[in-house]
Deep mutational scan, measured.
Amino acid sequence: MTTFKLIINGKTLKGEITIEAVDAAEAEKIFKQYANDNGIDGEWTYDDATKTFTVTE
């Protein structure tokens, strides 16, 4: 398992979430479901060097 981080730069929600996932594809699926569940819709980026996803509304 690898640790992945999501940085949320939303209009109403900001913060960071860290999860353990098998790979970046699994982490992205989990993070996008979390964002969808919380009404966050924005532009996604991923930095493989730091294993960090960012979503900006």
Rank of each mutant, 00 (worst) to 15 (best):
Thr18Leu: 15
Asp23Tyr: 11
Gly42Leu: 04
Thr50Arg: 13
Ala25Leu: 14
Leu6Cys: 02
Ile40Pro: 01
Phe31Tyr: 10
Thr50Lys: 11
Asp48Pro: 08
Gly39Ser: 10
Val55Cys: 01
Ala35Pro: 00
Lys14Tyr: 12
Gly42Ser: 06
Gln33Glu: 03
Ala27Val: 05
Ala25His: 12
Glu16Ala: 12
Ile7Lys: 13
Thr56Lys: 13
Asp47Ser: 08
Phe4Asp: 00
Ala35Ile: 03
Ala24Ser: 13
Phe4Gly: 00
Leu6Glu: 00
Glu20His: 02
Asp41Ala: 14
Ala27Thr: 02
Thr50Phe: 05
Met1Ser: 13
Thr2Asp: 12
Glu28Tyr: 09
Phe53Thr: 02
Thr12Cys: 05
Asp47Tyr: 08
Thr12Glu: 03
Ile19Val: 15
Tyr46Ile: 08
Asn38Met: 09
Lys29Phe: 02
Glu57Gly: 08
Lys32Phe: 09
Thr54Trp: 03
Ala24Pro: 14
Thr52Leu: 12
Ala25Pro: 05
Ala24Met: 07
Asn36Gln: 13
Glu16Trp: 07
Asp37Met: 15
Phe53Arg: 00
Lys29Ser: 06
Tyr46Trp: 06
Lys51Pro: 01
Ala21Leu: 04
Ala21Gln: 01
Thr2Asn: 15
Asn9Trp: 09
Lys51Gln: 08
Glu16Asp: 02
Val55Lys: 00
Asp23Val: 14
Glu26Cys: 02
Asp48Ser: 13
Lys11Glu: 06
Glu26Met: 14
Asn36Ile: 10
Ile30Val: 13
Asp47Gln: 09
Thr45Asp: 04
Ile19Gly: 13
Thr3Trp: 10
Thr50Gly: 10
Gly42Asn: 04
Thr56Met: 08
Ile7Leu: 03
Lys29His: 12
Ala35Arg: 05
Tyr34Glu: 05
Asp48Met: 08
Glu20Ser: 03
Asp37Thr: 15
Gly39Ala: 09
Thr12Tyr: 07
Gln33Leu: 11
Asp23His: 07
Val55Arg: 00
Leu13Asp: 14
Asn38Leu: 06
Tyr46Ser: 04
Lys32Ala: 05
Thr18Gln: 11
Glu43Ser: 10
Glu16Met: 10
Gly39Thr: 12
Thr52Gln: 12
Asn9Ser: 06
Glu28Ser: 06
Thr54His: 15
Phe53Tyr: 15
Glu28Trp: 08
Thr52Ile: 11
Gln33Gly: 15
Tyr34Asp: 01
Lys5Asp: 10
